[in-house]
Design a protein around this nucleic acid. Sequence first.
DNA 1: CGTTTTTGACCGGCGC
DNA 2: GCGCCGGTCAAAAACG
Length: 316
Amino acid sequence: MEKKQEEEPRTQNTKFSDQMMIPSSFSMTNMFDDSGMSCEFDQRGSLGFFDAQDFTSQSIFDLMQTPLPPQFMQQPLPSPAAESSEVVHTPVTPNSSSFSSSSNEAANDDPQIKTAEEEEQDQDKKQLKPKKKNQKRQREPRFAFMTKTEVDNLDDGYRWRKYGQKAVKNSPFPRSYYRCTNSSCGVKKRVERSSEDSSIVVTTYEGTHTHPYPMTPRGSFGIMPETATFGVGGGSGGGGGGTSSYIIPPVQHYQQQRRSYYHSLMAPPSMNFSNNPNSSFHRERAFRPSSSSLIRDDGLLQDMVPSQMLKDPKEE
DNA sequence: CGTTTTTGACCGGCGC
DNA sequence: GCGCCGGTCAAAAACG
């Protein structure tokens, strides 16, 4: 639906542009859902976390290029469900403010970060291993985030082809399935609106892009969400996820603020992406299929805010 | 004309 | 074994 994008780019500017939600709990634990491979995650969970800044500013897509940091899983996910389910839930709750705690979780992992490649290898290994039930299909790590936007189809810069849509249980909104149009890239993403808050779109990425960023500068970002919350998977329970509203005038400013904001909030020492905060910026264009890259600031996922999704929205 | 979206059918996993 | 459910396929339609 590109047309939509073209036609509705303004959404971003219109209403929400000046609003930003800030998740209180920022745990970026992503949900690696490996259905079935939970054990392994524990082992590998030693990757670094992405730098929140980068993360936000860049775009998820870029992140996708990177193997998701396993550490997310490291977090103690008490409930088994977390593993198997993606867990992106809990919409943002206004008022919450426990940002730091979550970040800790996420950040706390081992500062030592493996290189993306290493990680990938690890992942492969794990995936290859025949685990208990994992005979199914090896799932790639997933990572979800919530975005407050009116636009369903957030453009992250990559091109996606919709290959399915299904009604979501307990939700009036359908879930759309997209696949990266690059034939050699198997990245998939699912997009659905939160049943609790229709203004929030939950996007789950699965896989890593194996090709360079398509780059459609403006076009791609045109639709960026105004606000987003990163869901972390697994329901790592955490804490409360919530978000508070943050009002920001122009986007530009917003970005700046955002940066600092995140910086302060989420940039605990442990969060530095690979010890070299600056490096992340440069990497982005490197496009290493498996590199950990991340992000730049140009992108503007304007308002992505990681949040921890604590509960299962589905439960409603 | 080529690409993407739509949509119902199909398939495999999982719980009962 | 059966039914439910999530995810994917594929043919037709829509779009640029």
